[in-house]
Design a protein around this nucleic acid. Sequence first.
DNA 1: CGCCTCTTTGATACAGTTCAAACTCGGTGG
DNA 2: CCACCGAGTTTGAACTGTATCAAAGAGGCG
Lengths: 248, 248
Amino acid sequence: MADTLSPATLKVSCSNCSLRELCLPIGLNPDEMSRLDAVIRQSRKLKRGDALFRSGEGFRSLFAVRTGFFKTTVASCDGREQVTGFHMSGELMGLDGISADLHGCDAIALEDSEVCELPFDRMEDLSRDIPSLQRHFYRLMSREIVRDQNVMLLLGNMKAEERLAAFLLNLSQRLSSRGFAANDFILRMSREEIGSFLGLKLETVSRTLSKLQQQGWIKVDHKHIRLLEPATLKALLSGCANAGSGAR
Amino acid sequence: MADTLSPATLKVSCSNCSLRELCLPIGLNPDEMSRLDAVIRQSRKLKRGDALFRSGEGFRSLFAVRTGFFKTTVASCDGREQVTGFHMSGELMGLDGISADLHGCDAIALEDSEVCELPFDRMEDLSRDIPSLQRHFYRLMSREIVRDQNVMLLLGNMKAEERLAAFLLNLSQRLSSRGFAANDFILRMSREEIGSFLGLKLETVSRTLSKLQQQGWIKVDHKHIRLLEPATLKALLSGCANAGSGAR
DNA sequence: CGCCTCTTTGATACAGTTCAAACTCGGTGG
DNA sequence: CCACCGAGTTTGAACTGTATCAAAGAGGCG
């Protein structure tokens, strides 16, 4: 594979991608890595609000977030929508499409974003040849199931205050594992989207954030959030299972 | 593999298992099928209340329900537990254990049951050799993710009455696809377990069932449920997404 | 500058929870 | 055989957290 670095076509390359550890943290040898590179499709750019795919569309590929931020939603006939997850760099979207060869949710960019496309049939073939890749895929899907179970727990058992705490701590943890500040960040989604994800109305989200601020646990400045006492937030959740639930 | 039919050891055989279509509905040729049989471990029997596995235990195998009924639960430190699914014959449990090599939930038999054990590392190897098996596994895991998303939608958006309707219709559909009556069945779980799964208290489950009965939609006689007007129940859900949510 | 969307905050309504008590059923032992 | 017991269930009454309705405030963008 000629790795021409013409800035226009900018072929994606996993081998020198800074997200390698997040997205495909697998021990591939150079040869395997270059076969993987050959399969990954040129990265695709989306603007804020664009749909990467929509529920019901034919499923061809998984998508890994390179930069930006996404939400995935399941829509109901009468217009209600449930946000099923928020997705940041290095995370995979579209796993739910494999089962029926149709995408099961919408994926919407919440800011200008860039994704890698992984054509699934090629990945399937490749994973047959590269055991560690196959294993990685199984783990990835399993991890998604674990996350979903944690969201169920959140939706089934937790109060508004606990849900928000879990949500913020989860974002914090994922951001810090990407090298961003753990306790000072910008929310990419609206109050309504947070509410949809957490099973609350947007007013309740707003009120609860205010309450957490009044207590001095956090500082809210519109979308700018600072966690002043992350330990106290965690304490809110002890007794609520594997604290690290929250978002996708 | 010698298929000795000594009643004592009773080796499991997928090739002549009546659940083949449910559990592993894949086009395997006879050779592939016998290799699969060779990997499946002797079936294991559990009594009502027994744990098949528990959260935190090392993950070795997936388990397919042969007969009986299970719940899976995620427990929180302070004793609260969230039922994450109910599982009947032909369904697989343990997929959440792959990600960390640890089981992520408890699996408890709700009646005397029997399961097939699928040692995961052997299945991994086998799925590398048998493309259709690999593909089937990916689909299976993806289907689990889709189910979980539907439960999120249920927990995030639906009212008590809608949750119960979704739950009953889901059970109904799964039972009927196994050849049982769709509109007349026995619940294997307690009101409390239903409530935990649906994010409601047991009293609310009881009250809501009574209400559905008063309306004439269903007949409740303890654990014996009859759906008198399944169409009306479905109508409750139109507007609540892909009606087929509910249980696992 | 002013419109529009998103957000905050308040007042009220209601669904579901909590607490409590009565009831049913299956099992056990006198 | 019947009385008794306990677990699970139903039902009632009061309470509470969140939703709903409504209005005002804050930024961002044309």
